[in-house]
Design a protein around this nucleic acid. Structure first.
Ligand SMILES: [Mg+2]
Ligand SMILES: [Mg+2]
Length: 355
DNA sequence: TCTGGGGTCCTAGGACCC
DNA sequence: TCTGGGGTCCTAGGACCC
């Protein structure tokens, strides 16, 4: 059996440790309510006012004028996250962290419900943090399980009971069914995971085309062969972006921001001992449309100048397709290679034509 | 003064290769 | 010489997750 563990209102919970006088009050961790900020996490008291993650901070304040806003402090959350996951790692044989506040674990031998309760208790007693767990035979069922009795819940789905557990739940509870897929399914009258699970091939293909639909139907049936991985996945991209308080149309001003972002990306690459072969510039326009332009090089780079020059050139290219102003600009790098990698002598064999 | 920031993965067409 | 069938890489866009 495996478990999915998810910390409850994690950012808000960490902030309540730093500001205990705020306990019991509605608290939002998020961006500027007088600007373009959004809610990252709302405390459970704030949720009583209908405040939710991703809601604009201005809307959150309309719903609860007395709500206390705190800016996110990711470094501190990462520190707390490390404490949680090293504690869990000491109690479970295999741990795969998949986000700052959640992960999968293989439970130690013994009664799975008891083991999950022990881990939950340890996190509560040692770190004073609340978490929820789902225990099941596969990832997707464990993950949904951790969600259904939040906060502070444990849900155990017995082997063989997966499909029956999932069937009555709303289709949006299935990870991978987001706003778009959820709306398409709702239009078609598919409200529950059970209905998705029993869709015939043709109907599925018309509603959720491609491999995505096939995979979601398998998950809806409680079938998910993904293993719990002991090794963290290698990063495939690194990016930084900024939403401006006011839209910016001036090319030179944007170049300045892009150069700054290029600098922090270069730092990130050097710190990781990586080089990148692809640079991408991203723009978001007032109508929320996103335009990206990217360019790949033959050799990897990790210096601020080169990334900055490319990012600015890509912005100019994007502006030819669609001129500004923009509300957001960003730069990303991808196509990583290990820095100072040993170059091996060529081992290519001559390939034969096929067919 | 609606709508963050950092990510992953998928799709689809064209280039190019065998 | 009316037209195969892969495969990979690149680019751009998009859905989704926390
Ligand atoms: Mg959580
Ligand atoms: Mg989570």
């Amino acid at each position: 059996m495996i478990a999915h563990l998810d910390l409850d209102a994690f950012f808000a919970a960490v902030e309540l440790h730093r500001h205990p006088q705020l306990r019991g009050k509605p608290v939002v961790v998020g961006g500027d309510p007088d600007g373009r900020g959004v809610v990252a996490t709302a405390s459970y008291e704030a949720r009583r006012y209908g405040i939710r993650s991703a809601m604009s901070s201005a809307e959150a304040r309309r719903r609860c004028p007395g709500v206390i806003f705190l800016r996110p402090d990711h470094r501190t959350y990462r520190d707390w996250s490390r404490r949680v996951w090293s504690l869990v790692a000491a109690m479970a044989p295999v741990v795969e962290q998949v986000g700052i506040d959640e992960g999968y674990l293989v439970l130690p031998v013994g009664d799975p419900g008891e083991q999950a309760a022990l881990i939950q208790l340890a996190i509560r007693e040692r770190l004073r943090l609340s978490c929820s767990l789902g225990v099941a035979t596969c990832k997707v069922v464990a993950k949904i399980g951790s969600d259904v009795r939040k906060p502070g819940g444990i849900t155990l789905v017995p082997p063989g009971g997966e499909a029956a557990f999932l069937a009555p739940l709303p289709v949006r509870a299935l990870p991978g069914v987001g706003p778009k897929a959820g709306a398409r399914l709702a239009e078609a009258g598919i409200a529950t995971i059970g209905r998705l699970a029993e869709l015939a091939d043709a109907r599925l293909a018309s509603l959720l085309p491609g491999r995505v639909g096939l995979e979601l139907r398998r998950r809806a049936q409680g079938i998910d062969p993904r293993p719990v991985l002991a090794e963290p996945a290698e990063a495939v991209s690194l990016s930084t972006e900024e939403t401006f308080p006011r839209d910016i149309g001036d090319r030179e001003t944007l170049h300045g921001y892009l150069r700054e972002m290029a600098g922090s990306l270069a730092e990130g690459l050097v710190r990781r001992g990586m080089t990148a072969r692809t640079v991408t510039t991203k723009l978001r326009y007032p109508d929320f449309a996103i335009v990206t332009r990217s360019r790949s090089l033959e050799l990897g780079i990790d210096d601020a100048e080169t990334i900055a020059d490319l990012a600015c050139e890509l912005l100019d290219r994007a502006f030819k397709a669609r001129p500004g102003p923009v509300r957001l600009a960003g730069v990303g790098v991808a196509g990583f290679d290990r820095h100072k990698q040993l170059v091996l002598p060529g081992t290519d064999a001559e390939a034969e034509p096929v067919g």
